[in-house]
Amino acid sequence: MIRTWTMAEMTLRDLIRRRTVVGLLFLLPLVFYLARRDDHTGQAVKFLLLGLGFTSSAAGLFATSAARSLEPRLRLGGYRTIDLYVGRLIALIAVGLAIAVPYLAVVLADQDVQRMPALALALALTVLVAAPLGMLLGSALARDMEGVLLLLAVTSAQFLTDPAKISGRVMPFWSAREIATYAVDLTDIGYLRRGVTHALVCAAILFVATAAIAAVRLRRRRHVRIVSSSAPV
């Protein structure tokens, strides 16, 4: 456990000191929100959620690629692969939630939202999906730029697709829109249920995919035989 927590702590320290990323994390959702603030409440909230999802994913992307050259050495130093990505996930979720809280306050103060807990849930689930999405992009792609471009593509697609259609449902942050609709537009509970299910399934798929890539990349290779100290060679 100490390894996981140490990894989480150091990921957090590294992330917090990246002023650009932190600035982005805090301000981008606001920009998205302000863009639609004078619209209907639902739109403003949905944009906010998307903004939060985008920047949390970006943070995950940067955190993952920054540590890439260090991870094999950490493995040599005694870390298990699972310590590394679970630790990182914890840090990313912590950061995402830390941002979500003030935004919850902003929306509550600024808008008239009936179903508050649902809104809080929407924020939390957005972070829960965004973190492993960013980690997946960071571990699947060799270069930061490619990851950012792909993230931009996914986010744009999210905006452009119709949530009612299949293509819309495949998008990772579809759940955010569903739950936001439930929270703001006072629709039936089905929206909430669908949204939560979608979020949890997405988060799980993204997490498993990230874990699989990490497990492959940092695997103990078969050409290496490790002999215990007392055995003669």
Binding site: L76, G77, H223, R225, I226, S229
Partner: peptide, 11 residues
């Protein structure tokens, strides 16, 4: 080829 390591490694 194969590699046999007898102890901890620092890289």
């Amino acid at each position: 080829g194969q590699v046999t390591l007898h102890g901890a490694v620092g890289f």
